[in-house]
């Protein structure tokens, strides 16, 4: 494997080389001396498949099994509820704002980190990964501290007579915490690094030669980006976006802290699931869950498809 140009110094985890790794052919059929005896292979297979079956497959099956326990009628009834619909709408809204924001950020961050050398670059790369190190509950809490009623900005956000602001601003009753903006902000925070951490190693690996060539041939900056850089990074970009989206739609802890749990107004799908579950409305809870589980499955399929196209093994993401 070629030594990379820049080793990423990150607090978290691009665990090994952040580069496309060629998948070596499976060596089960290698020489006899480097094979485990048959009983060991059987034992390993049993343990591995048993563990995957019990810990991964079973929960997935349970979601659909519980959702369909009382038949299709009860299943679809869960979505007839107006609160469920507004939860779905809010989840889609939050993701529709959070994902493009983090996409724009990811492109800007990877452009300046991968294409230029400047002081403090490794620190910047480290700070981008920071949200993965923060517990979801704390991610919500920090926004309460900034925008909450007792927070830094809280007192200025409500309607009232604030001397430093104009009349129009003082008449507005801006709600961030226990309202939709807080949910969007918390979602942006927890999905912050996804796109950037896919693009930075990818763009570093690709280097800048093609961009130089484009500039020499007379392209301007935007043309270079649109016609040279973007086509090169599109799969990495797509990869980052689907992971970002899955997390944005499924986030529970952070959103739970800032939402206020107002039914039909500030409940996202995961929060709606919690309410239904706590009301012992299990079929509806699992029905809404099954939508998110399907989203997860689609994410996995797309992810495997991209990996298969590029024959690479992904390093682990820290999503703590």
């Amino acid at each position: 494997m070629e030594p990379p140009l820049f080793r990423r110094l990150t607090v978290s985890a691009v665990t090994t080389a952040p580069f496309p790794v060629k998948r070596a052919p499976t060596r089960a059929a290698g020489p006899r001396v480097v094979r485990n005896p048959v009983w060991v292979r059987v034992l390993f297979m049993t343990l591995a498949l048993g563990f995957v079956g019990i810990f991964l497959v079973l929960p997935l099956v349970a979601v659909f099994g519980e959702a369909l326990r009382k038949g299709l009628g009860a299943y679809f009834k869960a979505f007839a509820d107006s609160d469920a619909r507004s939860a779905i709408r809010l989840t889609l809204t939050a993701a529709a704002i959070a994902v493009p924001s983090n996409l724009a950020f990811g492109i800007a961050a990877s452009w300046c980190i991968a294409k230029f050398n400047f002081r403090g670059k490794s620190l910047l790369t480290t700070l981008i990964d920071l949200p993965f190190a923060v517990s979801p509950v704390i991610s919500g809490l920090i926004y309460v501290l900034v925008f909450g009623a007792q927070g830094w900005l809280g007192p200025y956000l409500g309607a009232g007579d604030h001397p430093c602001f104009g009349e129009w601003f003082n008449q507005q009753d801006i709600k961030i915490i226990f309202a939709v903006p807080g949910i969007v902000l918390a979602t942006i925070f927890v999905t912050f690094p996804f796109v950037a951490r896919e693009l930075i190693p990818l763009m570093q690996a690709q280097g800048s030669d093609e961009e130089y060539a484009a500039l020499t041939l007379g392209a301007n900056g935007w043309q270079t980006f649109w016609h040279v850089t973007l086509p090169n990074i599109k799969w990495g970009l797509f990869y980052g976006v689907i992971l970002c989206n899955a997390r944005a739609m499924g986030e529970f802890g952070a959103v739970s802290v800032v939402s206020g749990h107002i039914r039909g107004e500030t409940n996202t799908m995961p929060l709606h699931i919690e309410i239904l579950y706590n009301e012992y409305n299990f079929v509806a809870a699992f029905a809404v869950s099954s939508l998110l589980a399907m989203l997860g499955l689609v994410t996995l399929v797309l992810k495997s498809f991209i990996e298969w196209r590029h024959q690479r093994v992904r390093p682990a993401n820290v999503t703590a």
């Binding site: 997935l60 499924g250 995961p270 699992f286």
Partner: peptide
Amino acid sequence: ALVDLPFALPTAVAGIAL
């Protein structure tokens, strides 16, 4: 592909399923 399920499945869904 399934190994990544815990990344893709929302935590609340995993919680009630378990």
